[in-house]
Design a protein around this nucleic acid. Sequence first.
DNA 1: GTGTTTGCAAAGTGTTTGCAATTTA
DNA 2: TAAATTGCAAACACTTTGCAAACAC
Lengths: 136, 136
Amino acid sequence: MRPFSKSIDMLREVGLRPTRQRMALARLLFDHEDRHVTAETLHAQARNEEIKVSLATVYNTLNQFRDAGLVREVVVEPGRSYFDTNVDNHHHFFNVDDGVLSDIPVTDVTVTSLPTPPAGTVIDRVDVVVRVSKRA
Amino acid sequence: MRPFSKSIDMLREVGLRPTRQRMALARLLFDHEDRHVTAETLHAQARNEEIKVSLATVYNTLNQFRDAGLVREVVVEPGRSYFDTNVDNHHHFFNVDDGVLSDIPVTDVTVTSLPTPPAGTVIDRVDVVVRVSKRA
DNA sequence: GTGTTTGCAAAGTGTTTGCAATTTA
DNA sequence: TAAATTGCAAACACTTTGCAAACAC
């Protein structure tokens, strides 16, 4: 298998040109499972690994990946977006002390009896965020 | 009962001076139940009702009310904070098409089998957001 | 009168965008 | 070489802050 071919295929499938920046970010995101990044943290990691990419491109790329369904955007704090590489149905812990977001195994939380949505609307998705903090 | 005495008492109880601006905003917020406002929408409403208050004061007041436990901050969209006058345990619908946030009656959603929080942390609160959109 | 609060404008934070230069196919 | 993408800096939307004037007690 040629190097990077997985990233190339993934990008081609969603109609994005496999540029150097997009492939590098795809590898950072998808070589390990269940990552939770912000544009800033992903950009910092890229810099650490000597990948040349601007912060604007990181923002644009994350938005394109989200639109393509490769990552999911998670909003838990005002003024900051997290992107989750796990796009399956699942929920989150959010540590309000250090801002760390982590997955809750699907089996560990169960929402029973979903409410009837307001007239004229349908349910897109149910997000459960369990806010945690340091034990007192 | 003297006018405004409820607002005065409420503010005194949480250690905030009952200024003209804080009393006016308290009345807008608490004279009707279960309001969901942003700083901008509350400021707009104040202007409509001829209440003189700056946007900065609306922001500061909402933050003070939140710190005092009079309102709850709800984050569902990047770059915008909603404040909910219902501080009891409950959940939300969020209409992604028009940005309208509404309460889910407590009895209409049940989260069973809460997950074990990460080591060294305790659960502060569980937020369920049901994202809805116009029926296709 | 003394300390608190307000309003304004400026600053701050995270994010998006216009456009020339570069890269991809 | 034609179209897409990048990077920079400027623009943006929302929110916070510094400070002098106004207000509460």
